[in-house]
Amino acid sequence: MKRDIWDTIIGNRVFFLSLLFVILFILLSFTVPGFLNLYNLTNMTQYGVELGLLALAEALVILSGGGGIDLSVGSMMSLVAIVIGVLIGRVGLSPSLAVVIGMLTGLAAGLFNGLLVSVGKILPLIVTLAGMYIYRSLALIIAVDPQFGPNPMPVSNFSKSFYFIGQYRIGGIPFQVLFIFVPVLLILHFLLSRTAWGRKLYGVGSNETAATFSGIDVSRVRLTVYALSGLLSALAAWVITSRIASARPDIGTGYELQAITIAVLGGISIQGGEGTVGGVLLSVAIITMLNNGLQLAGIHQIWQLGALGLVLIGSVLLNQFLIRRRKI
């Protein structure tokens, strides 16, 4: 009986994460001064948006199976951020046009990854590792302003109209939460749980051979997923450049680890084909809260990554433990 209760608690990912969330929330409220007030809590949500978008990108890619992983999300984010920055700040395009071009850049980078994975049949790990190099390097090259010598420079002379998505609020709720994150979340949830495409994605992820025999175009599903990953990274880039009012060519460094961690903690099985958007949402909330708590407690940023490393290994260990237990 006791064992059954534990099984349901750990086995039901959404329940487990909710419990973890509540425990962490209470813990941080009592131990970290400045954590539990309305301003901090609403303010915190804006930091979760960029991470959340990248985590959803990672979730889609990992769901598609076949060793699916995208190590290049951070670099794609850097690339799009600097493209948007340079177009507005140096070329003088209107922000809306620059953002559209930025989104297309992200989509193109994602498509490039997807083509190599699905048509080229190269392992996702290798493709996106190379992609990480390439997009990061492109971002640095684009960031060079010949007027100021050969070094990459950040861009920060934006017009005020560019800041609306990252800095404005309605009733205390940041714009990017309301107009970007929530819609994306709902769309992806709908796509995955209610459409034929979603079922195809799960099918491809859990059993590629079976999916092929039941007439699913595996390559096309995978191509779409990597392209979406590029697009979501581009959205994250738009939001973050607007929020911090600066486009830096190294802005996405280290984000890939966080995105992968959140996706895996949220119950996306690294083998593919298993996991939900809801789990990822809870996981985003937990990690954002943890980062915020550590920051308020004055712990160096590098420990946020260190803690994430632990959480990543721990959550996969737990996943595998559960799978093994189910088999017995």
């Binding site: 992968i260 895996v264 990554l305 260190g306 994430l308 490393g309 959480v311 990543l312 290994i313």
Partner: peptide, 10 residues
């Protein structure tokens, strides 16, 4: 990839 990625940051 997961084990060593986590270890890298730790």
């Amino acid at each position: 990839i997961i084990a060593t990625l986590g270890m890298m940051n730790l």
